[in-house]
Simulated scan of single mutants.
Amino acid sequence: MSTEGRTSLTERRRAETQMEIALAAAGLYAGSEGADVTAEAIARRAGVGLRTFYRYFRTKEDAIAPLLAHGAERWLRLLSETAREMPLRDALVEAAAQALAATDEEGRESFAWTRGLLRAAASDPALRAVWLRVNHDTEERLVPVLADLTGRPADLDVRLAAAAASAAIRVAVETWALGDAPAEGPGSPADLGVRAMRGLTAQLDALG
């Protein structure tokens, strides 16, 4: 096997291990008061040693980042694809609707632990810091996407649009998580996300 092939395999295995640990962490946080979760408990649930856990994550809270980042990656990808087929304003709404839809069992399970995580984060500053960091990283990644899609430089208007679009998704998910609406239908993440994004695009002429 070539060096490049070995590197790729190593990276895939690393990503798989990170996701397994992240899923274990999310399951624990979603089912308890965040302060009761320990790195040892996460490692045990993931089936890895504590040394392996700390090889991948600096703190117990950091372990949820790959899952949150995965959802953000999906949204950015959908936006890039959708915006090639329709005006950007419509693409922002459509991408939000698709990214936040719980269309199968995996999606419903994902929103179940998301709700648990965000409820735990409400009283756990360290956990909330991870959530906000992932959202900030998403905002920064959205800037060049919007610049490319609009043919504009990454100026004030583009950065404002990226900040507002990211906030629309974040606020929609947080509002749903702290309420009692199901993951589908009225009041769901997709429903709130579409409403938030439509409000955004009605206000930001720079997205034109």
Rank of each mutant, 00 (worst) to 15 (best):
R12I: 15
Y29T: 01
T10K: 15
Y54P: 02
A91M: 03
R89C: 09
P186F: 04
E105D: 11
A121R: 03
R159P: 00
G185W: 02
E16R: 07
A25M: 03
T7F: 06
A154P: 05
A206E: 12
L76M: 06
A126P: 05
A69N: 11
E106M: 13
D191G: 06
A154D: 08
A190M: 10
D148F: 03
W131H: 10
M197S: 15
T114A: 10
D124Q: 14
G208Y: 06
E85L: 09
A183K: 04
A181P: 00
T201L: 01
R159D: 01
A97Y: 15
L142Q: 02
R45D: 08
L200N: 00
A96H: 10
R108V: 11
Y29M: 05
E85K: 12
A129F: 10
A97H: 13
G49K: 11
D36T: 14
H136R: 15
E174K: 00
E94N: 10
G34F: 04
F111S: 04
R195Q: 13
G31K: 04
R128T: 13
G151V: 03
R74D: 07
A22D: 01
D180C: 00
D205W: 00
L23T: 02
S188M: 02
R89A: 13
A22H: 00
G49A: 14
M197F: 07
T7I: 12
A126V: 12
L160P: 07
A183H: 02
R128P: 07
L100S: 13
R152K: 05
L9G: 09
T82L: 15
A101T: 15
P153M: 11
R77I: 08
E11D: 14
A206M: 07
A101V: 06
E184C: 01
Q203R: 10
A177S: 06
A154V: 09
D205K: 03
A97V: 15
A129S: 15
V93N: 02
A97D: 14
D157H: 10
A97G: 14
